[in-house]
Write a protein that binds this DNA or RNA. Sequence first.
DNA 1: GTGGTCTAGACCACG
DNA 2: GTGGTCTAGACCACA
Lengths: 129, 129, 129, 129
Amino acid sequence: MDALQFRIQPSSAEPIYRQIADQLRRLVASGQVTEGTMLPSVRDMAAAHVINPMTVSKAYSLLESEGMLERLRGKGMVISAQVRRSQPVTERLRQIEPALAAVVQQTHDLELPTATVLTHLQSMLEKDA
Amino acid sequence: MDALQFRIQPSSAEPIYRQIADQLRRLVASGQVTEGTMLPSVRDMAAAHVINPMTVSKAYSLLESEGMLERLRGKGMVISAQVRRSQPVTERLRQIEPALAAVVQQTHDLELPTATVLTHLQSMLEKDA
Amino acid sequence: MDALQFRIQPSSAEPIYRQIADQLRRLVASGQVTEGTMLPSVRDMAAAHVINPMTVSKAYSLLESEGMLERLRGKGMVISAQVRRSQPVTERLRQIEPALAAVVQQTHDLELPTATVLTHLQSMLEKDA
Amino acid sequence: MDALQFRIQPSSAEPIYRQIADQLRRLVASGQVTEGTMLPSVRDMAAAHVINPMTVSKAYSLLESEGMLERLRGKGMVISAQVRRSQPVTERLRQIEPALAAVVQQTHDLELPTATVLTHLQSMLEKDA
DNA sequence: GTGGTCTAGACCACG
DNA sequence: GTGGTCTAGACCACA
């Protein structure tokens, strides 16, 4: 399964390995990635994003220690069976709240009109879809 | 001048010194803080938020090197004269875009309905106001 | 606190980072290392055992993710407050059981007399004390 | 010949191929398996324990290179003629020493009373017999 | 082919 | 001073 699309920003302050882990957590939470799904191999992922294999490995290990991934000896990593297939919207909303809170504070600090921010976000969301 | 309200979260992944610097940048961009405004002393700021004075100093130095702050010998730091009083909305929108982009990606990954996210953000913005 | 004595065997099949983590877990379980104890810095530990700092860091990170260690920003790692000071003997016995189980199976496979194994272990334990 | 009883734990940290090899070595050392004994075929062994045939093959090859096994073309693997029928107790004790050493160190780290460990081991040994 | 471990060394973030 | 992240590259273990 290499249809997984990861967006990695090496320039971001967020560590790459956590960018990977967080994205995977969200993809699982939404049900886009389900139990038994095979992850791209460490080497493939590293090559695809031009990062060091160890960085990918670190992300996978993190998720393995959380029980979200399982190692199949000699085969690769798969989404663990204990993972809920899809979380309810309220639960997923909880996961996005920190990002929204950042928007709220910056809106406030920048004294931006609420409507302007919402409109702008809406257009970005539509462009993304 | 200590009417400035800073929100510092030592537990956050975002470095404290950048929390300070980013907030100041936004307060200046919005015109809430204008040319000549005196900043709280390093000691006061550190005491007020129970953080290390060096951390505050680092934030101030960062902004000084950007030309946003000026050091008045023996008096403290003030907002530099070269700072535009207030930036237009489009410019301020640009500054909030990274935060919005994060929301967009997470909305996508979590497969959350656009309307749900916008509604939730709106209620958070209203609560904050 | 650098009175901590670690035994590292680079030649062992057990990864170095786990040798460190396991020993620390046992030292904490026995109460020899208690809440608030400062750990040797990553660099000191690495230098003392002639291993790579990252290897030590990996052990510390592992224990941090388990909640046994806490990071004091800019200061180092300390034994977390949530750690029980000393575990009861029965609990500690549970931790040594895998090692005992290995002895049992090997005794069986080698058809060694029970008494011989026990006597030999006893003499080794006395030598160690 | 499939009367041989192997205990395989795929979940163990110890590699499967070594679990097989080590057990065979001990069975031979104790004289439970003697010269000329036919080993289960790679396929049978793999099927019986639901492991990869390559893993079994690796264990056999390892023992073959040590001279403990011989490959009879078209027939399978047999215990080599050069194998001493049964090793003296002192020699077999030597083989179990690493396991005992682990017990000693963990007893020390956990500050467990020597008597407690010995008693516990004794009861485990009796249960196993 | 898979992931795991370790090294040497660089650079960053924090205090 | 502290730990964190990343890289490049080597070697091992497993299937």
